[in-house]
């Protein structure tokens, strides 16, 4: 008899605990969201350089993106050349990019195409700063989702001084500056 009442009480408390867990789950999940991934809002990014240093991955999952459709194709490119560059050529001493990931190709007078070598880019944002200070802002930072491990709390988001990181739906994981871009997955 004593044992029965004891086990009955135990069952009751267990049931109450289960209800509590269910309640927590229901209450937390009341606004269900699609699967979300981290992304940088280019309008907020201040190119502080922390993307290169604060990612849990080395090199960072953040890399530079180039929206060709808003690029001026300038010869004198603020993203490519150092401000104190002696010459407007591909000499290493003239380049802003520390890893020579931003590559320049002649198209026609006077236009040059700038391409990012994704394997070399470390996401330091130096070219992005140059392009936004003197240029159209066609270079900008984005989280590359083939590299991002999608941490529960992004380590760069925590360190970001301008609150530029946000979660976006995994079905549309990029915040490109231009809708005119041809995309390849």
């Amino acid at each position: 008899m004593n044992k029965n009442t004891k086990s009955g009480r135990r069952d009751f408390v267990r049931g109450a605990a289960a209800v509590l867990i269910g309640g927590a789950v229901l209450s937390a999940g009341r606004s269900r969201s699609p699967r979300l991934v981290w992304q940088i809002d280019p309008a907020k990014c201040t190119q502080c350089g922390r993307c290169a240093t604060h990612c849990v991955l080395a090199p960072s999952a953040v890399k530079c993106f180039h929206s060709y459709s808003i690029c001026g194709y300038c010869d004198l490119c603020g993203g490519y050349l150092r401000p104190d560059a002696k010459n407007r050529n591909t000499g290493a001493e003239n380049q802003l990019c520390p890893t020579a990931a931003l590559q320049r190709k002649f198209i026609e007078m006077p236009y040059y195409q700038y391409t990012i070598n994704e394997d070399l880019c470390i996401g330091c944002g130096k070219c992005v700063k140059g392009c936004s200070v003197f240029g159209n802002g066609s270079l900008y930072m984005q989280v590359r989702h083939d590299r991002c491990v999608n941490c529960n709390e992004c380590a760069i988001a925590r360190a970001c001084p301008s609150d530029a990181f946000k979660r976006v739906p995994a079905s549309d994981p990029y915040l490109l500056k231009s809708d005119q871009e041809r995309r390849i997955v």
Partner: peptide
């Protein structure tokens, strides 16, 4: 000249 496409790889952790 037409500009090259932008590489937008999807999330790998699917």
């Amino acid at each position: 000249y037409t500009h090259p496409p932008v590489h937008v790889p999807g999330p790998s952790n699917m």
